[in-house]
């Protein structure tokens, strides 16, 4: 049976969903000037990648990969991508922690969390410095 593109996409909805979430995250990072929202965008992107990997390993109707002698013909899902994503989550957490620390530091320096305002404050400082 030949499937149309739309039916193929619907059939693989986890991948479609993860790519849409990836796009949302990417847009959030690039369009928001609030530093905290940028960080949230990064986290959304990373979550979408996690979904992509977990969906890769999944089989519909599969069982967790713990050998059950009573069911010799059971379909096991692939545990490897899920395992890889444990590493991904660890990386994501450390990046988030580091970025939060930087945001706190920037807030102490500039008194704001908005990238545009920081840019203005810095430029003012530069102009004053050169004129005096």
């Amino acid at each position: 049976m030949e499937l149309t593109i739309g039916a193929k996409l619907l059939n693989n909805y986890p991948f479609l969903g993860s790519l849409i979430i990836f796009g949302i995250g990417c847009y959030t990072v690039l369009s928001n000037s609030n530093l905290l929202k940028k960080l949230l965008g990064i986290n959304i992107m990373e979550s979408s990648i996690f979904l992509f990997y977990v969906a890769t390993g999944n089989i519909r109707g599969g069982v967790p990969p713990i050998v059950d002698l009573a069911q010799p013909e059971a379909l096991y899902i692939n545990p490897l991508p899920t395992g890889l994503m444990l590493t991904g989550i660890v990386v994501s957490i450390s990046v988030t922690g580091f970025a939060l620390a930087l945001i706190i530091k920037l807030y102490r320096f500039y008194g704001t969390m908005d990238a545009n305002e920081i840019f203005e404050i810095r430029n003012e400082g530069k102009n004053n410095g050169s004129s005096s």
Binding site: E46, L102, F109
Partner: peptide, 16 residues
């Protein structure tokens, strides 16, 4: 610090 934050966000985007 500001340069670090910019680098971190864009580099993490790249990692994704």
């Amino acid at each position: 610090t500001e340069a670090t934050f910019k680098y971190l966000i864009l580099a993490t985007l790249g990692s994704c």
